[in-house]
Amino acid sequence: MLVKVMAFASFREILGRERELELKAGSTVGDLLDVLASTNRRFKEAAFEEPGQLREWVLLMINKKRIDPFQDLGAELHEGDEIAILPPVAGG
């Protein structure tokens, strides 16, 4: 199945603005993040605390709905889903 990944702020510099990814049927958000991390070292360093553990402040949305990076990584993705990933900025 094909899903769309949209990155914002500093993640956009690493992943590009948006890309389509072919995933196995039944893949989860966690699987998608693993694919991104295993193919992009800079993303892995920026977004993950340690392998498999996303940094707690990373914002993730599926079809514009926010999901919790601690609880919802097992959520199943579907053909055509749009996943947004971004880090909040904090400066003033």
Partner: peptide, 17 residues
Amino acid sequence: LWDGLSCSMDEVACMRN
């Protein structure tokens, strides 16, 4: 979300938790 580097503006929906 403002990205001055590419000069683009996006928005994402927020929802009450």
